[in-house]
Design a protein around this nucleic acid. Structure first.
Lengths: 346, 346
DNA sequence: ATGAAAATGATAGACGTCTATCATTTTTCT
DNA sequence: AGAAAAATGATAGACGTCTATCATTTTCAT
């Protein structure tokens, strides 16, 4: 009738509660035989640990830290805001983030080393394609502190899970949206990247090129512009390109710094189709204005939640944490989500 | 440091634990003065009830029932599957669904009446645009059983919340996707509805017509086909229409029964742009095949979760349940989510 | 077979809330 | 003032898990 408790398991296994406890909480001093009896009983009864009761008894608080790239990047501002928000409504979880210089391996490494001594229950890192992090990451995992990569992956053996979108799929999606919007006519597409050293940017570009090449043969790609996610740089480069190539029919910006793109577009009459990533404030406005046509968003809220869920599951040691990949959302001006309420500054 | 407990509240209010309990759990026999002292202390300390502990102590189980339209409709099959899935992983919740004849006011009414006598904690109903349900719904709410409308709304005063997408936005989104995909060229669009008596179908049509009319003046709409969500009917009607109107450039199917549409399309060479609703198996296949181009999905998983969250919050009497509107997702062949694992029949 | 080490059992207290009971105090009415 | 009614206090037990302690039994090596 009711869910079985540990006492039920003990009875079924023919051992004492203490022994069951030693098995399920890995306290050692249990014979192989007893361990098997207990595990069999667990399976047989379908015992599921009552996490609520467990946390109650322990007054457990999870301590999680996010390592995020420093800077004005609007997307990560959103992530920071979300973390703060979750912190407030968190029952027994303490959430923090630490800003680390962007794309700086040494700094990230130092930060990871520092975290090793603090008693943490989990770390989420925005991955970096760098070899030098391996020892620090290994040391953390060795201490039982799980590391999850967020948004941009780390090598598989250096993290327990990756939370983020499939960036190849994102690039493909962008390609198909822009491709279909040519209505079968030919066109010239300008791709705007941040830095191809970043894994996510590379993946998006690969996906994009592949779909354009395979399914839209009448569309050609102009040479890539690498804008380093820097608005000023992007503005200038795009202004030039638009001036010299009046035949541009579409733009795909797969990185950040799109304010620069908006500025460049505003300065002239041509209105190509535009697809960008991340629904941040200026992208939202540009979408509503009709300046942008598609925004592909990785839904930071879901990502943050997924990180927390993953880490909790890992720590609670419960069955395989649901590894539901996060799909990029496609926004048009018609399906914009309501703005999150702004917190009035006190 | 730690979160305040009821004992802390009692101390701060200068009353006994028993009195605090009488206040927060509304047991009566408390003077107005005491009530105020307690409430003040609650606010002052920022007390938040520990729901885990509360449920633990009560061994509370929530009993929720979903009333779903009967029939083969693939979308509702998905909902049913999701409910079963949630049931399995539910800690202290019992979930059931009852199939009711579709679009049948009398049957739904009878079912609601029957549920009144069963001790339930919440009901989710797929709304119907019918006057006759009001007394039954009112009676349920009077007994403290909250009713939530799902997918298709009920009049505002007859339910405590609506969980579902904004169907006007969904129709607008479909219009813009198809409109943009004309690449500025003119076209003829065929809209395929189920039954305009259903609120969600009407809303989608309104949104669609509005955006086409406002932003794509070179696109014209052919007379609507009402297929009653019936595959056979739809197949026939569409086959006719395609034969008589070879100039059709796009099709928007805003209801169910799309297998019929697929059959009609397969029977001939013309390949118009197609947007449909709900990512069910055949839509998924058609998308992968290139037969469909856009699928707008209301993400049933999120809807089911939102229903449960709403109801739990209502019952736990916790602060305003987060009323996050559910956005329709747009799927292309490139961003299809992984298939849920099929359960092997035992 | 003796002692040390390993394994097991029994059990109490804590976590925060809910429910229930009984005793005591305060208020209200005549 | 005195009795009835209302309000309050005190407190114990339950929910399921974790942690800790101490006593007892079993296993193993010599």
């Amino acid at each position: 009738m009711n869910l079985p408790t540990l006492t039920d398991v003990a009875r079924a296994a023919g051992v004492s509660y203490a022994t069951v406890d030693r098995v399920v909480n890995r306290r050692g001093s249990v014979s192989e035989k007893a361990k098997q009896k207990v595990n069999a009983a667990v399976v047989h009864l379908g015992y599921i640990r009552n996490v609520a009761a467990a946390n109650l008894s322990q007054k457990r608080t999870y301590r999680f830290v996010f390592l995020l790239p420093d800077g004005a990047n609007a997307f990560f501002q959103t992530i920071r805001r979300l973390i703060k928000k979750r912190q407030e409504s968190a029952e027994n979880t303490s959430l923090d983030y630490i800003n680390v210089p962007a794309f700086d391996e040494a700094a990230l490494r130092a930060q990871l080393a520092e975290l090793r001594d603090q008693k943490l229950d989990g770390i989420a890192v925005v991955g970096l394609d760098a070899k030098g992090l391996a020892p620090e990451l290994a040391a953390l995992q060795g201490q039982g502190i799980p590391v999850v990569s967020l948004i941009s992956d780390l090598p598989q053996d250096q993290r327990v899970a990756y939370i983020g979108i499939d960036n190849i799929a994102a690039g493909q999606t962008a390609a198909r949206l822009l491709g279909l919007a040519h209505g079968g006519q030919s066109g010239q597409v300008q791709v705007l990247a941040g830095d191809l050293a970043a894994r996510d940017h590379r993946d998006r570009l690969d996906g994009f090129q592949h779909v354009i090449g395979a399914d839209f043969p009448t569309i050609s790609l102009l040479p890539l512009i690498a804008g380093r996610d820097d608005s000023a740089l992007i503005k200038q480069a795009m202004a030039n390109r638009l001036a010299t190539h009046p035949g541009i029919t579409a733009i795909y910006s797969l990185g950040a710094g799109n304010q620069g793109l908006i500025d460049a577009l505003r300065a002239q009459a041509q209105r190509p189709l535009v697809a960008v990533h991340e629904l941040v404030a200026h992208a939202r406005d540009a979408l509503a204005d009709g300046m942008f046509h598609f925004v592909i968003d990785q839904r930071p809220e879901e990502e943050v939640d997924a990180v927390l869920a993953q880490m909790r599951a890992l720590i609670d040691n419960v069955p395989p944490p649901p590894i539901k990949p996060i799909l990029p959302a496609i926004y048009l001006r018609d399906n914009l989500p309501p703005l999150p309420e702004q917190e009035p500054p006190k």
